[in-house]
Design a protein around this nucleic acid. Structure first.
Lengths: 279, 279
DNA sequence: TTCGACCCTCCGGCAACGGGAGAGTCAACA
DNA sequence: TGTTGACTCTCCCGTTGCCGGAGGGTCGAA
């Protein structure tokens, strides 16, 4: 007694799955959920009842804004381990996004609290050439956080193997295109004593030994996390526009005090904005 | 000594605001942030430094996914009260969204927990005609929650004024198009004793006195909140496909036990799926 | 003058569908 | 056996908030 699973029309399947007819057709087009059969003469889609659970899974994943290609990966996962890994990584991204959102909300409140934003203290400094270990890449703004964390690990590792202390706090330079296109060259660096050279294997991993150019900079201290960086940039850049002439060189940040675990409010960053040397 | 605020090029303004050049041009197009001046011969945009704080505010609101028209409303708000109201309502929507997401995650875990989902108990019932007070509307799936809450208030108010008890728990019928197009006619109802009639003023508010058609239904009980409704529908509908013939009439839900505040797990809903009467 | 960096305006594309037109199909009732 | 009326099909375009790129003008310092 073999009883095949009955098939239903797209409208009926829609009621069984809470997916709209349009959506079902779309999932067919993109290969997420192929009908069990298609009438060759009329083109009518026929869905089998055993496709219902699969549709329910798709619905949940899509409700969590998982991108369609990823949903496809989950559905095609060879085993539960691979499947759960994909799902978990998506949930982690959602967590990260939530944390970011919380930061932005806090920063928004701050901005609206009408504390007339203490006028930023800006000083002009002539900075000498600085030997550093550096890791360089063209990075999109969205990836910058993760990329910098990796780069920093590389730098620390290189540093640990040359029997020298860092000659100052970590930092990074950010090219103009990074701001204008949300993607540009970034150089993560850590100052080293003159003459220090990384091991060949660190060089192979991407660590360079270079010198940061010296010159004149307008400098301001940024307090707190990344969500408020724009305010310091705005104030510092405005100051430069008013009182000096900017240069097309990369902006430099020096992370004197990092965030304390989850609390970004203790962070201290010096922002160096390159300006024309006064004659 | 009047010193006008300096103006800067779009690229420089981009650095002051952390907004990409493309984005700034886009905000110009959609009227979010008009440059302070435009060179009539070259078309070059010039931004004034005093536009920086406004740009920062826009950035934060957009980072919270506030739609552009709403951002515009915030910027044009006549006073801080109106402005904060718009922002608060957006934050509330984000909270609601977050709650929904949590529900979906829980429901996803449940689905994946491989508890082989106890086979749903389905019974067939012949239901008599039922007089009800009803509120009727064509509703989109996204608005259904809020709409039903309002409708229920109307029904309860109508009921309170006719000196009659409800003759059964609240419920609603959902037309086929509601599932197929994510938008369709919904009738919220509460059973009343035969002969009860609402006040004229409740009628004016949208309350009708009608009779729900009787007939044969496949009935199953759904446990818990809305995020899992698709599973009950899937199981119930599949059962109908296998053992009866469905009808194009609206599906009926009876909310026997509602969610307990934030806890949807105690809710009990009977789902009535119309089927052809057995001859 | 000349070069490279900067700026302009289109035009097209993205994700994941929804709306709607125009036309073919199906099933139940008369 | 028609004849509805509900159902389904395939395009094609629109949505939101930008990004990428082409093709071409502008600016400023050497």
């Amino acid at each position: 007694m073999f009883e095949p699973d009955p098939v239903v029309s797209i409208g009926e399947f829609s009621r069984l799955t809470y997916l709209s007819v349009k959506t079902l057709r779309h999932y067919h087009d993109v290969g997420l959920l192929e009908p069990a059969a298609i009438d060759p003469s009329t083109g009518y889609r026929r869905y089998s009842l055993d496709q219902v659970p699969r549709a329910h899974l798709i619905r949940r994943l899509r409700d969590l804004d998982m991108p369609v290609p990823e949903v496809r990966a989950v559905l095609r996962a060879p085993d539960d381990v691979a499947r759960d890994a994909t799902i978990r990584s998506h949930l982690e991204r959602m967590e990260a996004e939530l944390a970011r959102t919380r930061g932005v909300v806090a920063s928004l409140r701050e901005l609206l609290s009408s504390a007339p934003s203490a006028p930023l203290a800006v000083t002009f400094l002539d900075v000498p050439v600085q030997p550093v270990f550096a890791v360089r890449a063209t990075v999109a703004a969205l990836d910058a956080g993760g990329w910098y964390a990796d780069a920093r690990l590389l730098l620390d590792s290189a540093l640990a193997h040359v029997d020298a202390r860092a000659a100052g706090p970590h930092g990074a330079t950010w090219a103009h295109e990074y701001f204008e296109d949300e993607r540009g060259e970034v150089v993560a660096f850590v100052p080293v004593p003159r003459g220090a050279a990384p091991r060949a294997r660190d060089v192979a991993a991407g660590v360079e030994s270079i010198e940061l150019a010296g010159g004149r900079f307008a400098v301001a201290e940024h307090l707190g996390g990344f969500d408020d960086f724009d305010r310091t940039y705005g104030a510092l850049g405005s100051h430069v526009v008013r009182h000096a002439a900017g240069l097309p060189d990369a902006i430099r940040e020096v992370y004197r005090v990092g965030p304390d675990g989850d609390d970004p409010s203790v962070a201290r960053t010096d922002v160096y904005w390159p300006v024309r040397a006064t004659a």
